[in-house]
Design a protein around this nucleic acid. Structure first.
Length: 814
RNA sequence: GCCCGGGUGGCGGAAUUGGUAGACGCGCUAGGUUCAGGAUCUAGUAUAUUCACGUAUGUGCUGGUUCGAUUCCAGUCUCGGGCACCA
């Protein structure tokens, strides 16, 4: 390791200075400065503390925040804690330590670690989702959702572990057994709160278009919402006064429907199954239920099913087709029933082959004796006309036939055009203690919301958190808390024992940062108008779908209620890539490849840590940690310090003379490149330019003060401690944090002479120096005069001369 | 299976609209400094071949478009992420 420059002497000093002087306190808007709201995904403060992945995003946002301040923006850059969640509760059950205590300890560790990196957060805006003053408003938002009819109760199956007397999260269930103890886990329906996110599916989808997010994240959200357009078709059940409704994206293939399949949970199943088949169907239903419980990762997708004995009437040709039951049809998607077109659907094809059901080709172009033909781009409809010839789609392309059949369904009332979504309503309750209590009272089945004045409904302090044994949360043990007596009527109500999931607090924290201490409102509407939307949001890709979708949903509800002024909360989103271990694998305790930021800061200092996190590669890419790499950036800072600062902490002698041309050009080129790279979040190449500039300055006999000062200004967002320290050693009394970002002079960067490569048949064979915008004739004359070009053209026929001004010359010879 | 991203020296990675591939950093080699090691400074460093000048090859692979392709197009292999019987 290189000899240390004294970072340990001044990094803490500057952190203390910024803290004591509240250097980064954000004044409430509106102000005359343009605003910039830059947000990190706030962390869950786990017991393990920070790992090097956390500071990657935080460093990126901090650099941008510091850069934007220097550019004259009013910057909002806050940090807080998403502190409800399972681990603290599990810890409480095991050790008896109350979750609030453990959580506070974890937060203290996280905060110390984050602060040791010199991030410029406005700590006066720190929020914690577990504070009463915060979750009061989470509860308030829930009440808004409830009043709008977007929150409802439903019976939903949970992972119930009888031995532990508790409900488990999916991640606590491994191979059908509880993670702790290995006890059996069964599915048990319980009353749960649901949020009607599906009501916003269309807007959540279409509003993605205007966001400055990566296409891949938008695609993930689009896929999750899973919009598909098609038709609903009613198939009357033969002999019954009811019809099976199906959803299909391929109404064009209706003539090819040779059977139907309903999900094992379909409500009509008991009614329509013939007596002979009843026991077989019931047995199948039980098996299907168990299968999904025990081993849902079963990869062998062998088709199974049972015939119900019933028949349906195909509405387009009156054909009688058998109705089967099979678990390849899901009750939770579409209508829980399908029309099966084996010739043109892979799954139906497999099923038909397994049970020897007829396969009728209605789109020509494939070979249905071999495989299902599923494309709608090619092929022509066949066998698709009614026997009386009254209706036909024969001869059409499938895509056209879809429209014609849909119209026919609408016209005859046998079906209608329909849209379906994969997105389901959001299961919004957990059987846990450590979460926001629902502001809800129960009177039998009646639901009574608390009034706003009763908020917050605080969590009761329990001597010991333990399972209720009934599947209800540990709150069911809090007898006093549970019972509420109405003083007027004397009537006794019971509180809701479910709590909200961890997502709740993170769904709106970006709004609370705007006005974190408001006791009368969740946030002030004027302040919201000033600060929203978030201009840049950086966080891990693991939240690409759920957190972002849920937050967008709440935001739209708040928008509809007039509490926020923007349709979308996060205008620009960037997902940082993962930092892998030295071995190129995901960092994990079991692999032993975890890097602790505390060790890095101790050994190399915060500036080197920050610089290395950004120098490793593009922010959005995954990349491996390499200790040699941090040595490199450390050496860069070390050389900078030791070249300009002597043993007595004095700056070497600088010159006040104008820099020479080369230095001046490099200085302005650096201002330009670093600024442009920062705008593009290309931190690694910006740092590279700083190194180039710094290397040049160190090579000079006489270093111009203005050049060194410019370097320090440019370096400041990246390595603020060393930049501030050297800035002050240079005799400046202002602080760099708010020094204006320098402007560059474009005219200095315009070259008068440039090197032009001469190619022969596309291969570079020589270079000439010409004036910018030199005439084609001049260039060619110089080119042919070049010795090696002469050699390559000697005795050859010149076929073509390509001269691209200021770029290249290519001479094609034969 | 479907939907997204990536594949460039020994390594992390650079490369405006197609226009001199390999910036910057690591590592390595040689030399200076040092009693020595470390640290540091200087020079070199894609591969093959050559004493050298040079020449040939080279951005996963195979083709294509072009005077010219890391960049555009088609196909293919591979790694990573997401979803997964979604009708």
């Amino acid at each position: 390791m290189a000899e240390r420059y004294p970072f340990d002497q001044f990094e803490a000093k500057w952190q203390k200075y910024w803290d004591e002087n509240k250097t980064f306190k954000t004044l409430d808007g509106p102000s005359d400065k343009p605003k910039y709201y830059i947000l990190d995904m706030f962390p869950y403060p786990s017991g393990a503390g920070l790992h090097v992945g956390h500071p990657e995003g935080y460093t990126a946002t901090d650099i941008i925040a510091r850069y934007k301040r220097m550019c004259g923006f009013n910057v909002l850059h806050p940090m807080g804690w998403d502190a409800f969640g399972l681990p603290a509760e599990q810890y409480a059950i095991e050790t008896g330590t109350p979750p609030a205590i453990k959580t506070a300890e974890n937060i203290a560790t996280f905060k110390r670690q984050i602060q040791s990196l010199g991030f410029s957060y406005d700590w006066d805006r720190e929020i914690n989702t577990t504070d009463e003053a915060y979750y009061k408003w989470t509860q308030w938002i829930f009440l808004q959702l409830f009043k709008k009819g977007l929150a409802y109760e439903a019976e939903v199956a949970v992972n119930w572990c009888p031995a532990l007397g508790t409900v488990l999260a999916n991640e606590e269930v491994i191979d059908g057994k509880s993670e702790r103890g290995g006890h059996p886990v069964i599915r048990k329906p319980m009353r749960q709160w649901m949020l009607k996110i599906t009501a916003y599916a269309d807007r959540l989808l279409s509003d993605l278009d205007d966001l400055d997010w990566s296409e891949s994240i938008k695609d993930m959200q689009r896929n999750w919402i899973g919009k598909s357009e098609g038709a609903e078709v009613n198939f009357p059940v033969d002999g019954y006064d009811l019809s099976l409704k199906v959803f299909t994206t391929r109404p064009d293939t209706l003539f090819g429907a040779t059977y139907m399949v309903v999900a094992p949970e379909h409500p009509y199943l008991d009614q329509i199954t013939v007596t002979d088949q009843l026991s077989a169907v019931k047995a199948y239903g039980l098996k299907a239920e168990r299968k999904s419980d025990l081993d849902r990762t079963e990869l062998a997708k062998e088709k199974t099913g049972v015939f119900t004995g019933a028949y349906a009437i195909n509405p387009v040709n009156q054909a009688l087709i058998p109705i089967w039951v099979s678990d390849y049809v899901l009750m939770s998607y579409g209508t829980g029933a399908i029309m099966a077109v084996p010739a043109h659907d892979t799954r139906d094809y497999e099923f038909a082959k397994t049970f020897d059901l007829p396969i009728v080709e209605v789109v020509s172009g494939g070979d249905v004796s071999e495989a299902a033909f599923t494309t709608i781009e090619d092929g022509v409809m066949i066998n698709s006309a009614t026997s009386d010839g009254g209706f036909s789609i024969d001869g059409l392309k499938p895509s056209k036939a879809i429209d014609k059949m849909s119209d026919w369904l609408e016209a005859t009332g046998k079906g209608k055009i329909a849209t379906n979504y994969k997105l389901r309503d959001w299961l919004f309750s957990r059987q846990r203690y450590w979460g926001e209590p629902f502001p809800i009272l129960k009177d039998g089945n009646d639901i009574i919301p608390l009034s706003d004045s009763d908020l917050p409904l605080t969590l009761p302090v329990l001597d010991r958190i333990k399972p209720s044994g009934t599947g209800e949360s540990p709150l069911a043990n809090a007898k006093e808390w549970l019972q509420v007596v109405d003083p007027a009527s004397g009537k006794v109500y019971r509180r809701e024992t479910n709590t909200m999931p961890q997502w709740a607090g993170s769904c709106w924290y970006y709004l609370r940062f705007i006005d974190p201490h408001n006791n009368d409102q969740a946030w002030d509407l004027e302040k919201e108008k000033y600060w929203m939307p978030v201009d840049l949001y950086i966080g891990g890709a693991e939240h690409a779908v759920l957190h972002l979708l849920y937050a967008r949903f709440w935001h739209k509800v708040m928008y509809d209620l007039g509490y926020v002024s923007t349709k979308e909360p996060f205008q620009k989103l960037v997902n940082q890539g993962m930092i892998l271990g030295m071995d190129g694998e995901k960092m994990s305790k079991s692999r032993g490849n975890v890097i602790n930021p505390d060790d890095v800061v101790k050994q190399y200092g915060a500036d080197s840590m920050r610089l290395y996190e950004m120098f490793m590669g593009p922010l959005e890419r995954s990349k491996p940690w390499n200790t040699n790499g941090i040595e490199g950036v450390y050496r860069f800072l070390n050389k900078l310090w030791r070249h300009f600062i002597n043993d007595k902490n004095q700056v070497i002698e600088l010159t006040d003379a104008q820099p020479d041309t080369e230095t001046l050009v490099m200085m302005h080129a650096s201002i330009k490149k670093v600024g442009m790279d920062l705008d593009a979040l290309a931190f690694n190449t910006a740092i590279s330019q700083l190194m180039v500039f710094s290397n040049h300055l160190r090579s000079l006999e006489q270093v111009p003060r203005v050049a060194l000062e410019t370097l320090l200004i440019l370096l400041n967002p990246f390595a603020p401690h060393i930049a501030e320290e050297m800035w002050h050693l240079l005799g400046n009394s202002n602080i760099l944090a708010y020094s204006p970002w320098p402007k560059y002079d474009e005219t200095l960067l315009e070259k008068t002479l440039l090197n032009l490569a001469i190619q022969i048949n596309g291969k570079v064979r020589g270079q000439i120096e010409v004036e910018v915008d030199a005439a084609k004739e001049v260039i060619l004359e110089l080119a042919y005069a070049h010795s090696s070009i002469k050699q390559y053209t000697k005795g050859k026929t010149i076929v073509k001369e390509i001269v691209i001004p200021n770029r290249i010359v290519n001479i094609v010879v034969k």
